[in-house]
């Protein structure tokens, strides 16, 4: 599989993602500048963490108007894999490709620690390597990670099994302890925790590796 890691001004987890794909799951990966207008030839697009455009206005709000974004929307609409981590998740909600929004943590401080997540849905392109209900250990690092949506949206998320990861302890005040959600079609995932920072034991956890392996499993299935 060939992955694109989008590089916005202020992205800072791009190389971690690049490393996770190249060394973690041994696939082809390229950094793609936000000014590019084509993702031709790629199979999946990854939006890294960081502070795109300095988090000016709202996290992710300005990145939405970058030239490459039209291609991200095309990928999402064509059912291709789109994964947004941390700032990438914020960008996907600002874009409207994922429901809800990410706002300042309930206790307005930056949280940087490794947390327990529960895999609520293991029937997706991103989680098929995990067991349903499995508890995984993944780092978070965010100041604006409180997931918010209205009651109607939450109802829809539950009915369609779109809530993929749930915090075991509600670190940031998220609605329903939500750490990661997909779109209805389940080809677009956004999550605040950083699986790319948990791909080998020496990093403290390798629980994130299975997320990337799941994408490969899914693609093999789709191709056959």
């Amino acid at each position: 599989m060939k992955f694109a890691v989008i590089n916005f001004p202020g992205s800072n987890c791009d190389m971690d993602l690049y490393y996770a794909i190249r060394d973690g799951i041994k696939q082809t990966v390229e950094l793609v500048d936000y000014r590019n207008e084509s993702l031709e030839g790629f199979d999946g697009v990854l939006i890294p963490g960081g502070f795109s455009y300095g988090d000016y206005l709202r996290s992710g709000a300005i990145a939405v108007h970058a030239p490459i974004v039209k291609e991200i929307i095309r990928f999402a609409n064509e059912g291709k894999i789109v994964l947004g981590i941390c700032n990438g998740f914020q960008i996907l909600t600002e874009l409207g490709l994922l429901p809800g929004a990410l706002i300042q943590n309930e206790k307005s401080c930056f949280i940087c620690e490794t947390v327990d997540l529960k895999v609520l849905n293991n029937q997706t392109a991103f989680t098929n390597e995990y067991q349903a209900g499995q508890i995984i250990n993944i780092p978070v690092a965010h100041g604006e990670g409180r997931y918010y949506c209205d009651e109607k949206t939450l109802e829809d998320l539950k009915i369609n099994d779109q809530i993929i990861f749930e915090y075991q302890q509600n670190i940031n005040g998220s609605v329903a302890q939500i750490a990661g959600v997909t779109n209805k079609q389940k080809n677009v995932l956004g999550m605040m925790p950083h699986p790319e920072r948990a791909i080998e034991k020496i990093l403290g956890s390798d629980d994130g590796l299975k997320l990337f392996q799941s994408i490969i499993n899914y693609q093999v299935k789709v191709n056959n």
């Binding site: 709202r58 709000a61 939405v64 108007h65 600002e94 929004a101 918010y148």
Partner: peptide
């Protein structure tokens, strides 16, 4: 489209 996020 930019200055406000109608979700929040």
């Amino acid at each position: 489209d930019l200055l406000a996020n109608p979700n929040i």
